[in-house]
Nucleic acid binder design. Structure first.
Lengths: 160, 160
DNA sequence: GCTGAAACAAGTAGTGT
DNA sequence: ACACTACTTGTTTCAGC
């Protein structure tokens, strides 16, 4: 397991909320040196704990008003790979997972509006060979969306 | 509709993939001045197109191996708000949406492992008043995950 | 493993076209 | 609406503790 102490956790908590926060400011708040922040962030990157920094784009502001999760059933399991390839060709499909349960594949779709979603479903997804059917769960509202807790790592670090 | 031209699009494409990319470097690549990049990013922030910059944390690296979508059915529709409040108390529930279709609420859960997920489901979610039942779609694998396309804005800008 | 200073690079604001 | 310049601030490296 990776080493992961209080300083790492505090740095992570800050930069994952604001990736452009100056390291010098973080250092000041944690009362550590400028360069230590730099060293720790480099370590976290090397370990793969942090991968990259992204600017978050508001989907509604750029015209995507309909967010929907879609469960996909296959005619037979062997079509899975091919269907994933087909889904990848549709830019509005932002996420694609193999799942357990009633569906084989579970995706996240962003469309301009409900009509656009209907088009994507019936003119594109349903035409992919191997797709037996779909169920859509259109998001009326997102109540909350938040980052993953960091407690597991610190708990484990305590055992080292 | 917002003004949104080629420069805006190019800047967005770059910073959403790397929020710490130096503005000066973006300026160089687009062959525009340093300060124009700065101005445009400020504009995009004011318009709400970009909200904040985040560092992406790898869930597996920090101990969360089980990702699952969970559909929640309610005993009666009027319980909705209360159930959302209950879900908010569970830190491993990272996203919560009101949805159309078979379920009333659809959530994203990250757990240490399958047993931990089971615990969250039966010892926490099922004990919230109003929850009639749940179905879990455990993600065996995420085939792809990508950012939203930006073409809509530029298409609309052309009509202005 | 951490700090501090020094060299370097980038962000910011004001002015002019 | 954009570029240029001067100024401020942050980043990064490295010697030393």
């Amino acid at each position: 397991m990776n080493h992961f102490d209080y300083v790492d956790q505090q740095i992570l908590l800050q930069i994952r909320e604001d990736a452009r926060k100056p390291f010098s400011q973080i250092a000041e708040e944690l009362k550590i040196s400028n360069s230590l922040v730099h060293q720790r962030i480099r370590k976290l990157k090397q370990q793969g704990v942090i991968q990259k920094a992204e600017f978050v784009v508001d989907e509604k502001q750029i015209g995507f008003k309909t967010k929907s999760y879609v469960g996909i059933r296959l005619r037979e399991a062997r079509y899975a790979e091919e269907v994933v390839k087909g889904l990848q060709e549709i830019p509005q499909v932002l996420e694609c997972n193999y799942v357990s349960g009633y569906y084989a594949i579970f995706i996240l779709v962003f469309a301009y509006d409900n009509q656009h979603l209907r088009k994507i479903l019936y003119e594109q997804i349903h035409k992919i060979d191997g797709v037996a059917g779909t169920d859509s769960f259109i998001c009326f509202d997102t109540n909350f969306k938040r980052p993953i807790p960091l407690d597991y790592l610190t708990k484990n670090a305590a055992n080292e």
